[in-house]
């Protein structure tokens, strides 16, 4: 413990260049977060698919929504990095 000023913070700014992880595509991530939480909407048996009640197959379908949206956002970030 010394009474030197904390120089490390300022030096860190030199370490990494200023960047941003903001991207309009990020909003897409809300879809797979909100959908699976709307339980009353999908807590039903009909319509069935291959003998599966709606409640079960739709939640597996949400997995696909999650994969697609996160992949799209990842791509957008990659493009942003190059551009």
């Amino acid at each position: 413990m010394t009474d030197q000023p904390p120089t490390t913070s300022r030096r860190a700014a030199d370490l990494a260049p200023r960047r941003s992880d903001k991207n309009p595509w990020n909003w897409l991530l809300l879809l797979p977060i909100v959908l699976p939480l709307l339980v009353p909407v999908f807590n039903r048996a009909e319509p069935e698919l291959f003998g599966w009640p709606f409640f079960y197959w739709v939640q597996l379908a949400f997995v696909v929504v999650g994969v697609v949206t996160t992949s799209l956002v990842h791509r957008a970030h990659q493009r942003g990095k190059r551009g």
Binding site: S9, L15, R19
Partner: peptide, 9 residues
């Protein structure tokens, strides 16, 4: 002890 730019390094 961290800087803003650390978070996007």
């Amino acid at each position: 002890g961290t800087a803003d730019t650390d978070y996007t390094a």
